[in-house]
Simulated scan of single mutants.
Amino acid sequence: MPLDLKVGDKVELKKQHPCGSKDFEIMRTGADFRVKCLGCEKQLWIDRPNLERRVKKVTNKED
């Protein structure tokens, strides 16, 4: 079952970004996700299966 991820959600991933941060903000959803590293502000494109596999926890959900 797919995770319920929305634009604005903040997620913690299992592996860290090269800058050292594990926290990312979801910028775009769909078949591919655009996420922004909260450490260095770099934006990445990740497909849904890879992102769902890498998410450790959703740290902040906006309602």
Score class of each variant (00 low, 15 high):
K61E: 00
H17V: 07
V7M: 08
T29L: 00
T29P: 00
P2S: 11
D32W: 09
S21E: 15
T59Y: 02
P49C: 04
Q43V: 15
V35M: 04
G39T: 09
Q16Y: 12
L13P: 00
D47Q: 01
L5Q: 12
V11R: 02
G8C: 02
K56N: 10
V7I: 14
K61C: 03
K56F: 04
E52C: 03
T59A: 04
E62Y: 04
D4A: 08
V7L: 11
R28A: 12
T29A: 01
E12Q: 07
E12Y: 08
F24R: 05
K10E: 10
R53K: 15
P49L: 03
K42G: 05
H17A: 00
G39D: 09
E25A: 10
R53V: 01
T29C: 00
R28F: 05
I26G: 08
V7W: 06
F33I: 09
D32P: 04
L5E: 02
G30A: 11
T29Y: 01
D9C: 05
F33P: 14
E25N: 02
C37G: 11
N60S: 08
M1L: 13
R53H: 09
C37R: 04
M27S: 06
K61Q: 06
D32A: 13
L3P: 08
R28N: 11
R28D: 02
E62P: 07
S21N: 15
K56W: 03
I46C: 13
L3V: 10
S21M: 10
K56A: 03
V35C: 02
E12P: 05
N50T: 15
F24N: 03
V11C: 15
V7Y: 12
C37V: 11
K10A: 05
